[in-house]
Every structure is written in C-alpha cells, then in structure tokens.
Amino acid sequence: MPVASQAATALKAKFPSATDRASSDHAACNVPLAEVPAVLQFLRDEQGFDHLADLTAIDWAEGASPRFTVVYNLYATARGEYIRVAADCTNDLEPAAPTVTHLWPGANWHERECFDMFGITFEGHPDLRRILMWDGYPYHPLRKEFPLAGIETVLPDAEIAEVTKTPVIAAPMAGGPFVASPGEINMADAEPSAKDQSWNERKPKTD
C-alpha cells in the first residue's frame, strides 16, 4: 500500500513519470532509471533529504523482467523523514544504473558493493571495483542463482594457486545451518527453506 507524504507528492508533480511504490513504512516512489540523478538531486536540494542512508539493489531472480531494482533510502536530517526511491534496471542481462557519487561521495562504496554483489555497472562511477570480494572473483554472490554453499574458486592470486596447487573451496555454509557435519548432505535436504530442489551445490543448475 502506498504511503502518502508531501515530498512524494512534490516529486510526482515535478517528475510526472514517477509512480507510487508499495511500502510498509515510509513514502516510496518508482522512477525511471535515467531520471534517478535528477530525482535525487531534487530531493536533496529542494526537499531537504540531505542524508543518503542506504543504496542497494534487489534481484527478482532469473526470468523476471525487470530483474534488478536499485533502491535508494534517503533521510531528511532536519525533520526526521524518510523516502525511498526505486528504479528498475532496463537491461536484465547486463544491468547498469547511473551513478550518484556526484551528489553524495558516500555513494561510492555503496555502488561498489552493489556492483560486487549484483554485477550492476554504475555509469560514471570514478572507481568501480569490487569491494567485499577480491579483485578477479568471477561471480556476483547476491544474485539469486548463486548457491548459498558457494562455488569452488581458486585462490585470489592465481600465481600462488599454481605454485602451491591449492584451489580453495569457498563454501563455509556447505551442509546448511542445521547440519553438524558439513558437506555430506545436500543443501536442499538440510535446509527446509530451500524449496527448489532441482539443483544444489553438487548438482549445478542446467540451463
């Protein structure tokens, strides 16, 4: 159910393409991706939302279109009010979004994290590198197709792995949270919430 607020009304008056977004707490708006920097600048300069509280993305899983949504949570420090702005990425295979680092330098690390976890490219970002995973890591772990148990990967420094012959299995959760001896049981058997049993960490998903 949409939540009404003066700022959201002003936003919709200024940007006719903005629509209400269902929310359980604060006012929220959907805007087209290309308008995000303009919308956020309007909210910051004219509506007092001076604090970029959070920037993140949602993956609606493979097959969904639009697949990725970028979400901005803003906070107005002077009057204690939140607003949420969400924008769907137009390209499902190579998602991209405009950067907002010129508005808030603090968005830098948030966007790097988003790129690292979801593979969303932020156009115009000054230094778009991985931040939590290591440079050269091949996957984007918060995408829904990435298994909880992880995927076998070699050491970050390929040269060391070659010399020491030690590929590293990045699978801290193998076996699932209910299992004391990890690795012996399928994720799907161990974890009741893993409803989709057509694939697991031992039997990768086939396209």
Binding site: M133, F146, P172, M173
Partner: peptide, 11 residues
C-alpha cells in the same frame, strides 16, 4: 575491506 565478509545478506 572485505576480509571478514561472510555473506550475511545471502545467509
């Protein structure tokens, strides 16, 4: 940063 990344959000 990231040396202590455990994937809490994935979990």
């Amino acid at each position: 940063v990231g040396y202590l990344h455990r994937g809490d959000e994935k979990i």
